[in-house]
Design a protein around this nucleic acid. Sequence first.
DNA 1: CGCCCGTTTGGAAACGTTTACGGCACACAG
DNA 2: CTGTGTGCCGTAAACGTTTCCAAACGGGCG
Lengths: 367, 367
Amino acid sequence: MFSFTLDATPPRRSATCPLTQNGYFVNIRELARRSGVSTATVSRALNDRAEVSEATRERIRRLATELGYAPNEPARTLVRRRSDTIGLVWDSGQEAQGLHNPFLLGLLSAVRTALSEADYHLMLLTTPAPEDPEGTHLQAVRRHNLEGVIVLTTPPDDRFLRLLAASTVPCAGIDTAFTGPRTVRVSSDNAAGAEAAVEHLYALGHRRIATITGPLHLPPAAERLAGYRRACARLGLGVPEAYVAEGDFFLASGQAAARRLLEVAERPTAIFAAGDQMAIGALHAAADAGLAVPRDLAVVGFDDIDAASLVRPALTTVAQDQRALGEAAVAALRGLLDAEPGAGAQPAQARIVPTRLVIRGSSRSGA
Amino acid sequence: MFSFTLDATPPRRSATCPLTQNGYFVNIRELARRSGVSTATVSRALNDRAEVSEATRERIRRLATELGYAPNEPARTLVRRRSDTIGLVWDSGQEAQGLHNPFLLGLLSAVRTALSEADYHLMLLTTPAPEDPEGTHLQAVRRHNLEGVIVLTTPPDDRFLRLLAASTVPCAGIDTAFTGPRTVRVSSDNAAGAEAAVEHLYALGHRRIATITGPLHLPPAAERLAGYRRACARLGLGVPEAYVAEGDFFLASGQAAARRLLEVAERPTAIFAAGDQMAIGALHAAADAGLAVPRDLAVVGFDDIDAASLVRPALTTVAQDQRALGEAAVAALRGLLDAEPGAGAQPAQARIVPTRLVIRGSSRSGA
DNA sequence: CGCCCGTTTGGAAACGTTTACGGCACACAG
DNA sequence: CTGTGTGCCGTAAACGTTTCCAAACGGGCG
């Protein structure tokens, strides 16, 4: 029973390992030596396998926390062939910065906490430079044994991403329009959000409601326009073509579009803009035209960026639930991971999370 | 010479490995088999070691790219005892959200690209829940063999972080007030930025310049106030105590502080606010008081958040260079990594990156 | 008393890489 | 012709885990 072979073979490079608890290196072998069992048993104890007696399990665990043992993940990954790690990609394209910035960080936080609650680790993938070889993302996935990738709000024409989506790597995208054998798309209910905005304006008495859209080749922009149209139709509001102005999600385009809308013969009394920056632009246009908001013109935006609550009057807007989006993406990805590839060829339907209307001064003065 | 042992031992689980290029698994052994050399040579060729002939190196590399070989990082990490990976921590505290949100994402991007240019990988560490055991970050560092950690804008009282900083793990913090044996702090030149703001107002003819500070226990807030005072002293401007109002970096506090400042007998003609949200609050206060900006009152902020360019008049502000901050943090961390621990006990002086004054409509109408 | 079974344990082989060490072939000087 | 160096390469041992397989042990049952 007493098979103490203390210091039989001193480990080779222990002294140089930078990260030790008390100066000496503690791995599973050290734990085994100290507690007089084999490494197999230690591994079983720490991994909560059933085939260990309660007594030894407890003993080993106490020793492990006492010595500050931390399992070596690379070694585990190597032998288990799974890393419990997922990759994260987000667009670094400059063009979308102004648009998505504040939104992204909320998503990032949400994804991070949701993943860590599911005991996954998170690796940030670097967006490849344009001259990088194709498949950079795929390479990263293979190098690190990543089990899946979460993609945040990336333009649909990213060739690196298309390659990734086309592979068998499980991907969950938030506000991302890719499609592939093992991908899921998660997004806000853009249409319903737009409908809610229109209904809100209708309830306030508005009957001439115009809209400023985003670039219509982007799915969110198209969906918000569709929601606007559907609500108008349902409420019996006519939508003359002059009431639909296209913007690019940025402030200047919103201001210009609003200026045009305000010159229409049947001047609209309310504007629903598909993005907050454009809505703020509409506020400026109203001021330029000498119109008081919300008395002469009501404005509703979309996204609830930081600035929405800082401008004056504060902007009524359709808020996306970043936390829910992040959690939905993680849940969707886990679903993809659990489903064995090739098994059920379920089309991995898109997940839609609801939005929330935040009512502020730009639509009604009472609030 | 012809020691072909083709298919001597078929690899055990190749078929089940999910991430293969063409259906079969390609590792360094496969490359060796196909090119008729040993794994040692393959490794040397791929790692650009000198002891390989140019011919075989080229042959092996071509084969590698042709087969889509990706090195197994966990295995490399295991044997090399270094992961080329650094960890990233940022504050998840809700209270700072409104303040740092837009800023953080820029930092994140900058850090990510700077790290990937230096061939490091990035792992997101999850902020531990309050009930988590101490040392969670340290555990993560040891588990993943992380070589260092970058910390973004975290309140000084985070106990998890204090533990990390106290360890021998190299840490670089941006806008973070920790100190430890192997830590560097990187931050903007808050004092100089404040001075530049005051000088700008002085150059426009203002002589009665007040300030709204942040919470003075936070280093950035204190430094900005110090810069304001220094510039005023240098320019011969008196600073009556009533000209200094403390806020909390949020809009409401700025609005309230500005209201107080505008009631002072010698009413200031310009206000320097240590944060953009507070500056926007000052704009609102001016509007409430019937003062036109910038004619009756000039306002300068700090940070250049998104909203600064969206409000009306647009806000003149001191922009922090997020990219430079990120790069400086990475450079500082690399310095820490290169310096052997225990060698030169250099105190790892703080790195300061310059700010940039962005002049917009809130300080002068011409622009 | 012998056998079988269930529980707990240990030995050892993997996982994919890097690298210390030694060996072979060749060139060149003595 | 021998010795010495140099350039290139192969063998094998690590790195810290997990897990397959077998073994030890004790107990119940025929």
